[in-house]
Design a protein around this nucleic acid. Structure first.
Length: 647
DNA sequence: ACACAACCGACAT
DNA sequence: CGGTTGTGT
């Protein structure tokens, strides 16, 4: 909903801009807005619960644009739990979506796929699991992100107020009511957008004199005409509302006036709705990424500090002792640590008892549990990987074969090591219950297991005796050794084209093919952060533990000589910029992230041979998505029984 | 002039 | 979810 008709009224102060305007600045991004758009690229897959990386690719593309082309610091913000005020609205929408999904599925099963697509488009739903997928990508890229305890709108405005960001990218006009100063809307693929500045309110026409209203009066206006928290008063739109506010100043007087001449009927709930709306707009719970605590968008005035009513409108939080979501008045009674985990995307925002799992990973796991037997000899998988191998061979210069062979030898060595590790871990696992140390081992087991599966497939590929493809020991990033000479050469894109040309002759695909590997890799890299236990008592990992997790994952691959979590992101971003944005040198711009940018530089400076490379793209291009689906399913087989313990 | 309901596009092929 | 269009008051 938002504020119907607000943006049109603001047309006079809508300024067409380019993102270049924000070079060097930080911008908050409404993650769900992007997710919602991106989801349309794979509506069918979402409705059918099939894996898809499409929606993530949208983020990869856009974030790449922001970072590498415009040198902007993105700050992804995701919605959290629904506010009480909006829960029934949410329910209605959900109902509608379910209806459309049913229809779509019926048509699909009847074989009418075309018409099914239509309904799938109408039931596009964005889930926290999808957000988690993006979050995992953000982690690899060292992109700031936060899951708001409640609405992203309030969270983003908080970030802007506190100076964490310089502006907000969103389509939602509500932001201006929350107090947003710089709103950037209608961003397109080329980096063009429309900017709306609060300061420009003074330039609005006399017809809509927003600048003559204070913040409270603006809230009155939107509540009268209707907003997310109020249905509004029928027959009152923004223009009528602003006139009333100008005339009567306060809500009380407006109500009296309306009642006096009796031409309009005020819904009985309106008064209460308005009260709740004022609280929600002003004091909604947000997460402070500096102090890592739950706080409020604006400081609650001392007169309202004890108001149960207020705190019931701004979002229920987890009570430290009772471990239940409820109206909490005193901030010291809030379980801030738990909310930190929600903010980091570790826990499901509306059910803090559940770990939040990357959608794609979750699908892998459920797919596994459904067909609990490994079927390594699956034909399609075979052909898929063999094909990949052939493709690679035909594509890469012969000079690189030897190095690839070396890489493969190392891979095998590591695989052996990991097998052993795995076994001891399994033993350990059997003996212990879920606690932190075990979680680490579990992760280790996971990756070892993955490697085992990969080993199998890789062997088959290599049996063609053209060992160009090397499977990175850390199963997640399958990599090919890209010839340094080739990368140094003036034209780098052709190399990619060659790779794909070998695949099926259709080399005329998008030039963004270099994005694909990173997107795919990123869908999977994050699996390194997959939760390994769902037990709430043994509360989820601390940040440190998460890091250990990913280190356990990759130390085998990288021999621990390098910060593992940076390897992918740096090199992938690096690769991407090498291919797509050669003229824009990789410039890490991460003042916000704790991670040392120096590391990224290091990686960039490293010999090209050491970088993970484009193997993914070949897989992607060479294979139908169904193949990759099956590949994933196979790979995680040994994992699910303890990773995804019950649901 | 204003409000509002109905429909469309989003994404990407 | 926003914007647009046509219709009704």
């Amino acid at each position: 909903m938002g504020i119907q008709g607000l943006l049109p009224q603001l047309k006079p102060i809508q300024q067409p801009v380019t993102l270049a305007r924000y070079e060097g600045q930080s911008l908050a991004i409404d993650g769900y807005a992007w997710l919602h758009r991106a989801a349309h690229a794979c509506a069918a897959e979402l409705a059918l619960n099939q894996p898809s990386a499409k929606y993530l690719e949208f983020f990869v593309k856009r974030l790449d644009m922001l970072k590498n082309r415009f040198h902007i610091n993105p700050y992804m913000v995701f919605d959290g739990d629904a506010l009480m005020v909006k829960k029934d609205t949410e329910l209605k929408r959900r109902q509608k979506r379910i209806e459309n999904r049913e229809k779509g599925l019926a048509l699909w099963n009847a074989g009418d796929k075309r018409q099914a697509y239509e309904y799938f488009q109408k039931c596009v739903d964005v889930t926290p699991e999808m957000a988690k997928c993006v979050i995992d990508y953000c982690k690899t890229q060292k992109i700031r992100y936060v899951v708001a305890p409640f609405e992203a709108d309030a969270q983003m405005v908080y970030l802007e107020k506190k100076g964490f960001v310089d502006g907000i990218i969103s389509e939602d006009s509500d932001l201006l009511i929350f107090g947003c100063c710089k709103l950037i809307t209608k961003l397109n693929d080329h980096g063009e957008a429309v900017e709306i500045c609060r300061d420009d309110f003074s330039h609005l026409p006399a017809k809509f004199p927003l600048h003559q209203l204070n913040d409270e009066q603006i809230r009155i206006m939107v509540c009268l005409s209707g907003c997310d928290y109020t249905a509004g008063i029928p027959k009152i739109g923004l223009l009528t509302a602003i006139k009333m506010v100008r005339k009567f100043k306060t809500m009380d007087k407006i109500i009296l006036s309306i009642q006096r001449d009796g031409k309009l009927t005020i819904p009985p709930e309106f008064g209460e709705e308005y009260q709740m709306a004022t609280f929600a707009f002003q004091y909604q719970r947000v997460f402070c990424p500096q102090d890592n605590v739950i706080t409020t968008l604006n400081t609650v005035p001392s007169g309202l500090m004890e108001s149960e009513e207020l705190f019931s409108c701004i979002g229920r939080v987890v009570h430290k002792l009772e471990q239940v979501k409820k109206v909490v008045v005193r901030t010291e009674h809030i379980d801030h640590e738990l909310h930190y985990k929600i903010a980091m995307g570790d826990l499901c925002p509306y059910d803090f008892c559940k770990m939040l799992v990357n959608r794609e990973r979750k699908l892998q796991l459920t797919a596994k549990s459904e067909s609990s037997i490994v079927s390594p000899g699956s034909k399609s998988i075979d052909s898929f990987f063999n094909k990949s191998a052939v493709v690679s061979v035909s594509a890469l210069p012969g000079t690189e074969i030897s190095s690839a062979k070396a890489a493969r030898r190392q891979t095998e060595r590591l695989l052996q090591e990991n097998k052993k590790k795995l076994q001891s871990i399994v033993e350990h696992r059997k003996l212990s219950r879920f606690d932190a140390p075990v979680a680490r081992n579990a992760a280790s087991k996971f990756f070892s297991a993955s490697r085992n599966n990969n080993q199998e497939v890789a062997d088959r590929s290599f049996s063609t005796d053209v060992s160009v493809v090397s499977r990175a020991p850390n199963s997640e990033a399958v990599s090919v050794v890209v010839p340094a000479s080739a990368l140094k050469d003036a034209d780098k894109l052709p190399i990619v084209e060659d790779l794909r040309g070998g695949s099926d002759g259709d080399a005329s695909q998008d030039e963004l093919s270099t994005d694909i590997p990173s997107s795919l890799a990123s869908t999977e890299i994050p699996s390194s952060m997959i939760p390994t236990q769902t037990d709430v008592d043994a509360t989820p990992f601390s940040e440190e533990e998460s890091e250990i997790l990913s280190e356990v994952d990759e130390s085998g691959a990288e021999k621990g000589r390098e910060n593992p979590s940076k390897r992918h992101c740096a090199s992938l971003a690096d690769l991407r910029s090498s291919f797509t944005y050669q003229k824009a040198p990789l410039r890490p711009r991460d003042p916000n992230v704790v991670a040392a940018p120096a590391k990224i530089k290091d990686t960039a400076a490293k010999p090209l041979q050491q970088r993970p490379s484009v193997q993914r793209s070949k897989h992607y291009v060479a294979s139908p998505s169904s193949a990759s689906v099956q590949r994933r399913a196979t790979r995680t087989l040994s994992l699910s029984d303890f990773v995804y313990r019950g649901d």
